[in-house]
């Protein structure tokens, strides 16, 4: 029933089926830029639940990084952060107590292992 890895020509698999089937499995995600990401899968929803209150790095399309504690976020990737530090080209440029980032600017949200102020 799972269909995963089945080769029978009768089995059709929509993108929705595929997404259900790959949960928890190792995957490669390839971007248009050619960059590969290799990891085990979690749904975006699982990820968003898991990272609330954790230190994160948010990279914008412009290339600017924001490091801070994720206060909250929504399905548009709108983000509220605390203890925010703004990095341009890896250099600390600004600090904000609270910051709101509109989701359309967000390239990715990453959990950060590094402590704050450890920076760049």
């Amino acid at each position: 029933m799972s269909g995963t890895g089945e080769k029978g020509s009768a089995t059709t698999k929509t993108p929705g089926d595929f997404l259900k089937a790959i949960r928890g499995r190792p995957v490669v995600v390839k971007l248009n830029s050619g960059v590969d990401y290799r990891a085990t899968t979690k749904t975006p929803g699982d990820f968003l639940k898991a990272i609330r209150g954790r230190p994160v790095v948010v990279k914008l399309n412009s290339g600017v990084d924001y490091r801070g504690i994720l206060a909250c976020l929504d399905g548009y990737m709108n983000i509220a952060m605390e203890q925010t530090e703004e990095y341009v080209n890896g250099q600390l440029k600004n600090k904000y107590g609270d910051a709101f980032i509109r989701g359309n600017n967000v390239l990715y949200i990453s959990t950060s292992k590094r402590t704050l102020a450890d920076g760049a």
Binding site: K7, T11, T12, K13, F18
Partner: peptide, 12 residues
């Protein structure tokens, strides 16, 4: 293997 309305595709 399948596709959707956006023509996202599952390929093997």
């Amino acid at each position: 293997r399948g596709f959707d309305v956006y023509v996202n595709m599952v390929l093997e």
